[in-house]
Amino acid sequence: MQTGLKVTNLCKRFGGIVVADAIDLDVPAGRIVGLIGPNGAGKTSFFNLVSGVVAPDAGQVMLDGEDVTGLKMAERARRGLARTWQNLRLFPSLSVLDNLLIGTRDYPGERLSRLALQSGRIARDETQDRLKALDVLERIGLAGIAHTDIVNVPYGQQKLIGVARALMNDPRCLLLDEPMAGVEGQAYRTLQSVVRGLAASGVAVCVVEHNVAFIRDLCNEGVFMFAGKVLARGDVESLVADPRLTELYFGT
């Protein structure tokens, strides 16, 4: 069932800080939902709760009709939930290509026993994943640096590689945490077209971004978060135009 992501009554507090206050939010398959709100609103925390990095105090996370609330983050990823990180979290001792290879939903060489008993099959799967990774890099405009060490790649491109690594999952739901911060020029358009293509193929996409222009260009609708609460939902234009929200966003 392709229903996308559905979150109900999600609650989480860290000591006195409420980062998720009974959040109800759905991201339908094929839609791009932008998540906006000031620093500390709880946007990243929402992604952490949905992807299983942090366990909620209450509430439910459903992925395509399946309750994944009790699953570990690795199991959620293996069901097609992919995310990127605000602070990248790439693997510095690997090349660009190798970073992507780790992101496949089923990593061929993950089990030592399989490595010994089915080495031929693993070699074939690895070759296939390699081609897929090169294809993803091509789509995102970075095929030329596939074999570069990640530490030698400029920040803006690292940001795109974070997205590319998530794409290796063939996700059903993709969470992008500030994909545009530090990215400029051509990459802006590339990222837009890649995300649009994903949504067109039925992926549920949720994007956190401070770059309002990017959100307005890309998203079908926007959600405004503040202090762990969803305050408003609608088309991005009207959210941005709402003086009450603008005041919360910029503070007074």
Binding site: V53, M73, A74, A77, A82, F91, L94, I102, D106, N169
Partner: peptide, 10 residues
Amino acid sequence: DDELAFAALG
């Protein structure tokens, strides 16, 4: 390198 990112990839 990064156990959390590793686990989050499945």
